[in-house]
Every structure is written in C-alpha cells, then in structure tokens.
Design a protein around this nucleic acid. Structure first.
Length: 259
DNA sequence: GGGCGGGCGGGAG
DNA sequence: ACTCCCGCCCGCC
C-alpha cells in the first residue's frame, strides 16, 4: 500500500542504484583486466578509464590469472574485474599498429620514471638503444643504472618497449620477465641478435659510413642501409669522431645530436 | 677479461 | 630527515 507516483519512483530509483551502480562509480573502485595474445605468448592487461596501467606476461604469471590479480592489487591496492573486451587501441598496438586511442594510466610513477618511459617509447620497432642513451636523452647522462631500475619498474612492458633498451654493447641484458623473454621479443620484431652478439664480441658498438662519415648505433635504420663495403665499426663515438665522423641525427649516439 | 667501484633514483627503515 | 641498500649498468684497471 504505497502512495502512487512519488514514493514508487523513489523506491525504483533506490533499487536501481542498489543493483546497478553507475558505471563511473564502479570504475572508482575496480580496474578491468583482459587476457590477450601478445607477440610472444598471452598477456594479462589491466586498465582504468584513463588507460592501460599494468601488463604482465601470462608466462611470468605461470598462466595464473589469480596471481596477476594479486600482483596488481599489491602494487595499486585496487581490485580487478574481468572486462568483456580489451581497451581501445590494445589489439592494434599488439599487431604493430599503435594508434592514438591507445592510452596509458601511469599513476604512481615519479617524474624520473615518466621521463625514462617516454624516452623508451621513442625507440623504433626493430631497433635498440643502450641504457646510457636513455639516460642522456632525459638529461641525466650519469643516471645509467637508475634508468635500468626505472625500466625494471615499467608497469606496462611490451606496450612501452623497455625491451628495446640494451647494454652499451648492444646485447639485450636483463628484463622484467627475464632475459630470455627480452631476446624473444627482440627477435620477434626483427632484431638480428646473432649480429648483436657478434658485434659485441668484436667490441664494435657503433657503425659508420665511410661515404657520409656519419656514425650510428648498429640497429639504426640509417646504419642498416650502409652497403657492406662502406661500413666501418667503432668502439666508441670518440674514436669515430677522431676519424672525422659525426653522430647520426636520427639515432643520436652522442651529445650534439638531438634525436 | 672479470672484478670493482662509481654513479644514480627509490624505497625501507 | 637521514642513512643504507638494492638494481634490466658502465668502463676502467
């Protein structure tokens, strides 16, 4: 026995609120997650309304989504609920077509870490740059090891390609998901690791062109176009400079070259 | 050629 | 706040 109109409307409204809270409200509490195929195995990807904030390889999580959710909660103190579909831009990014709709939610990172990730994002697919290059690009040339620490804290590996950051001699080095995974990722995008190891063995950290007298990192698109008879290896940029070479403007193997 | 210390940011006391 | 310790490093001896 309720009065018509008013009360019924209020009751319905309350019931609706109780069973179906507004979307924005649940988003304040939960983050979403999906499992998607990645370049080298499946990925767990978490995201908020602002963008993707966490990526783990299923392999590193032993294929256990509960472990993924636990690690997310440990890091962000926030629960996850499975989403019906992946966030905008994720699938195309994983197919090598990054779009503007791919967004990241990089909350909880320091300014330094932001800078490091931004620099890593500038490394083209299929190329690599050393930790020291990242340090120099963000204006902290001596913070080389700190760059490694920051990359190790990359919440969205693979999407922000910290696997493209190598040791100074071009060999892959360490990685959040293990060095093996780093090698798989690099090979999957066409990096010639056999060549990288060979150059490291010969202490060739840079490649110059005897015709242009420009010196590059070996994986730079420019360096790869140098005809074999015109290639000249250098151990350091200083050595190249002594021979009259200047740093490539594209890959910026030294100061004085803005990438 | 591998070991050692310099260098740096961040987190735990 | 300050110290200590660790880490996807680097280059020298």
């Amino acid at each position: 026995m309720m009065t018509p109109d008013g009360d019924a409307i209020v009751v319905d409204a309350l019931r609706a609120l109780a069973t179906d809270p507004p979307r924005e409200m649940t988003e304040l509490v939960y983050s979403s997650w999906v499992k998607v195929p990645g370049p080298v195995g499946d990925l767990y990807v978490a995201f908020t309304h602002k963008g993707i904030d966490y990526v783990r390889s299923a392999e590193a999580m032993h294929g256990d989504q509960a472990q993924f959710r636990r690690s997310y909660r440990e890091r962000f103190n926030r629960p996850l609920r499975e989403a019906g579909r992946p966030p905008a831009g994720l699938l195309s990014a994983l197919q090598g077509r990054p779009t503007r709709s791919l967004r990241f939610d990089l909350h909880g990172l320091t300014a330094f870490e932001h800078d490091v990730l931004a620099a890593a994002q500038r490394i083209p697919t299929g190329q690599t740059r050393p930790y020291g290059w990242v340090a120099r690009m963000i204006g902290r040339p001596r913070a080389v090891r700190a760059v490694g620490t920051a990359l190790g804290n990359n919440p969205v590996p693979i999407l922000i390609p910290c696997h493209r950051v190598t040791k100074s001699n071009g060999v892959p080095g360490e990685y959040v998901f293990g060095g093996e995974m780093k090698q798989h990722l690099l090979r999957a995008e066409g990096v010639d690791l056999a060549e990288a190891y060979e150059l490291a063995r010969r202490k060739v950290n840079f490649i110059g062109s005897v015709t242009t007298h420009i010196v590059c990192f070996p994986t730079c698109a420019h360096a790869r176009r140098i005809a074999s008879q015109n290639r000249r290896g250098f151990r350091s940029v200083a050595e190249a400079a002594d021979a009259g070479y200047r740093p490539c403007l594209r890959c910026a193997p030294a100061l004085g070259a803005s990438a």
